[in-house]
Design a protein around this nucleic acid. Sequence first.
DNA 1: AACAGTCTCAACCGCCTCGAG
DNA 2: TCTCGAGGCGGTTGAGACTGT
Length: 363
Amino acid sequence: MSRKPCCVGEGLKKGAWTAEEDKKLITYIHDYGEGGWRDIPQKAGLKRCGKSCRLRWTNYLKPEIKRGEFSSEEEQIIIMLHASRGNKWSVIARHLPRRTDNEIKNYWNTHLKKRLIEQGIDPVTHKQLASSSSNPTVTTPPEKSHSLDAPSLERQYSRSISMPSMSPDPSSDSKISEIDNSDGKAAQGGSLSCKKRFKKSSSTSRLLNKVAAKATSIKEILSASMEGNLTATTISHSSFFYGFPEQDSSNASLTNTVSEFDPFSQSPFYPEHEINATSDLGIDQDYDFSHFLGGDNHNEENNMNIDYGHDLLMSDVSQEVSSTSVDDQDNMIGNFEGYSSYLLDHADFIFDTDSDSLVKHFV
DNA sequence: AACAGTCTCAACCGCCTCGAG
DNA sequence: TCTCGAGGCGGTTGAGACTGT
């Protein structure tokens, strides 16, 4: 019972971190590892509260953190998880690889919430706002507002929730690079603003970036779910094919080639080619995001956004990932990686100027 | 160029949970 | 069983960047 309180003390600094402070913290954690935050400021020579050090590390300096624009897949995941979990940012963050709860929270408050409102959807209840609905729904009490069933969600999101997405900033691995050393202050918002980024991106490059983001996101999602040691991700096998309508099952050679990289085919833990289809939404079928993507115009660009199952509304009370062996997890992750690589290696994505969309050709 | 309004997001605040003593 | 501190979490703030006039 002789512990010192954490955040009391004279001369503790507040406000933006300087590059020098960041360097001290990074150096210390590199040498001694995370944990024992109470003692870190003194040992690292920082005039900061331990809690502040922990937040700075976990939200900003940690090497594996991904910064930059959220992909459309990430946006969809956030919205769907928010619909079922509410403002449980840490829970949502566990299922978004390398994203922090703080970043997700900010992105929700500054982008996604506004977009849902613009679309006439209540960002709290995820139901149609009364003023914008021709068929007003009864207001749902808050405690029930985040447990909508799949058909309800499907009805609510009648338009695209996608925005042009950019691949992660290549420089994002270097946190130091985001510090403006000219005045010793942390650079505000380490990357360009959303609006500016979009101005710089042509529709073609945006689409190509989507392809790149898609190829890695499959693996990342499963990896994060496993690393989070909470739940299995509910990605159904057949979802992989929903986004590839031109993939004809009658084409025997193609089908064989694809199944060679089937991430589920070698897992004895997931019979019937389905990973833990239990979800908070109580759905066990694939969630077809084409309903989200805008009326009758389901062009290829839209399909690019729904290429894997978005019924990955995981349940923290469902099957624990720890019940699977390490070998099996590695095997599955490896298969995801193989499938992603396959897409990049064996499918040409050609930009069709007529339809302003990408056309996918397997070679 | 200057100013005001708006937007973004890093950082802080306060509360909660868990576990050690 | 109780107390208390560490760590975690969600809500909020405000400095700085951006945009419009």
